[in-house]
């Protein structure tokens, strides 16, 4: 069971959290302007890397805040947690938008 650091509550057991998938998937501002392929890319495609992965977690059975975690998908080691800043900021959901694919 993972030990996850909630930026507000401290380290807690994984059972207190729910998983929110890859971080940094930003909703397009004008979906209608996107081609079907571009919309499908936003909707369905995820990086699924082997190694470092920035992802969203929710302290569902605690403070109910969403935050980011960088976790290694092989070792499950967690490098750290980060609060989500305003959109477009360093730690906002707009961060880490570069993708391998």
């Amino acid at each position: 069971m993972l030990l996850i650091e909630c930026p507000w509550c401290g380290p807690r057991a994984e059972t207190e959290f729910s998983y929110g998938g890859e971080a940094g998937i930003v909703r397009p501002l004008d979906p209608d302007a996107l081609s079907d392929e571009e919309w499908a890319d936003y909707l369905f495609y995820r990086a699924n890397p082997r190694g470092a992965h920035r992802e969203l977690w929710n302290h569902a059975h605690g403070c109910r805040r969403w935050f980011g975690v960088e976790r290694d998908t092989v070792s499950y080691r967690i490098a750290g947690s980060f609060r989500l800043g305003p959109a477009g900021s360093e730690t906002g959901k707009g961060a880490n938008t570069e993708r391998d694919d």
């Binding site: 929110g20 930003v26 909703r27 929710n58 969403w66 305003p86 959109a87």
Partner: peptide, 10 residues
């Protein structure tokens, strides 16, 4: 809550 906190915190 997820949309409010992660996508539209403004």
């Amino acid at each position: 809550e997820a949309w409010l906190q992660t996508e539209w915190p403004e």
